[in-house]
């Protein structure tokens, strides 16, 4: 039996109208010459560039001398920038991998054929691009400035004009940057002594961040109340014991600062952005939403690259581009 190969392709692609011959050009010369000219133009441009601008070559590699700052290649600087604000596995690997997966998934999310082959394609595309680009850029810059504690400097400078001795109040310590939620904030909740978790003082209080760094996972052997302590699973073969959660504590303050808050921000901000544009009546289709998300991702990558490459000085401190030390 003959198999109809067309039957497996989607209906949308099968209904494509036949091309009209009068709208067609011959590849030779109309395309091949354009390609040839483009290749020539770029060859000349790059030969010219290469005669004028030399590729950098610093001193011989030496692992004993660490340049400050040491930076990744420019297209990875965005990830290096993320590392400053979140857990290294999240910033350097998980978030970019998910980002790449989302980019790869666009055709499977936006499956309609509308607007294909035309720039922007939907009526609101340009508005969506401008809005999501601005939204992503502004929030990226604002979040970096916040995590760098720049608002503390600004507010302190302003207030010190009227009150010379003013300091950032202790009560607001956790709001200097994200990390200070872990380091600059102390509070406790009273609990029955019998339910006291953690290896610290069993004083009837759970203290942030001391006691919360030892929230035991189930079947924990070393900390936590008696009812949670189990002996090591000796009945299992040794290799299975090695995979067991026994003796594992969760560092809650670090988890909140390094994983929970960054993930929440990376999920909630795009959702808010999309909802705002829906409220504005700009987003009607998956294509509209995809344009918003894609533009936002590109804008974040671009801003992170600019800041990482141009504004990070010694110790990855946020400085102006002319203050970034020259490495040789």
């Amino acid at each position: 039996m003959a198999v109809n190969a067309q039957a497996v392709s989607s209906e949308a692609s099968a209904t494509r109208p036949r091309r009209e011959r009068e709208q067609e050009l011959l590849v030779w010369p109309d395309l091949v010459f354009v390609e040839f000219i483009a290749a020539m133009v770029f060859t000349f441009m790059f030969v010219l560039l290469s005669t004028m601008l030399d590729a950098p070559l610093l001193n011989q590699a030496n692992l004993d001398i660490t340049p400050n700052p040491s930076k990744a290649a420019w297209y990875l600087v965005a990830l290096q920038e993320l590392l400053l604000h979140m857990h290294p596995a999240l910033g350097g690997v998980i978030a970019p991998t998910i980002g790449l997966a989302i980019i790869g998934a666009f055709p499977y999310i936006d499956r309609s054929n509308d607007g294909q082959g035309t720039w922007f394609g939907t009526p609101n595309a340009v508005k969506i691009i401008l809005f999501s680009g601005a939204f992503a850029s502004i929030f990226t810059v604002a979040l970096i400035l916040y995590d760098q504690g720049r608002h503390v400097n600004v507010i302190t400078n302003v207030v010190q004009r009227s009150d010379k001795d003013w300091q950032w109040p202790g009560k607001l310590a956790p709001f200097q940057n994200v990390r200070s939620i872990q380091t600059g904030w102390e509070w406790s909740i009273p609990v029955p002594v019998s339910a006291q978790l953690g290896p610290g003082e069993h004083d009837g209080e759970l203290n942030w961040p001391d006691d919360f760094t030892h929230v035991p996972m189930p079947f924990n052997g070393t900390s936590g109340p008696d009812w949670m302590r189990w002996g090591p699973p000796t009945f299992l073969p040794a290799w299975m014991q090695a995979m067991y959660w026994y003796d594992l504590n969760m560092n809650t303050p670090a988890f909140v600062v390094e994983l929970f808050i960054p993930v929440a921000i990376m999920v909630i901000l795009p959702v808010i952005m999309i909802l705002m544009m829906r409220k504005l009546g700009w987003i009607h289709t998956m294509r509209d939403g995809s344009i918003g998300i894609f533009t936002g991702m590109m804008a974040v990558y671009f801003i992170l690259t600019i800041i990482g490459a141009g504004f990070r000085g010694a110790g990855q401190d946020l400085v102006m581009p002319w203050d970034v030390p020259h490495i040789d």
Binding site: Q60, L63, P67, S70, A72, L76, V93
Partner: peptide
């Protein structure tokens, strides 16, 4: 194999 390359790769590999 200069300072730029070895440290950029060190940073990248630490990410990996």
């Amino acid at each position: 194999w200069d300072q730029l390359s070895i440290w950029a790769v060190t940073v990248g590999m630490n990410m990996a």
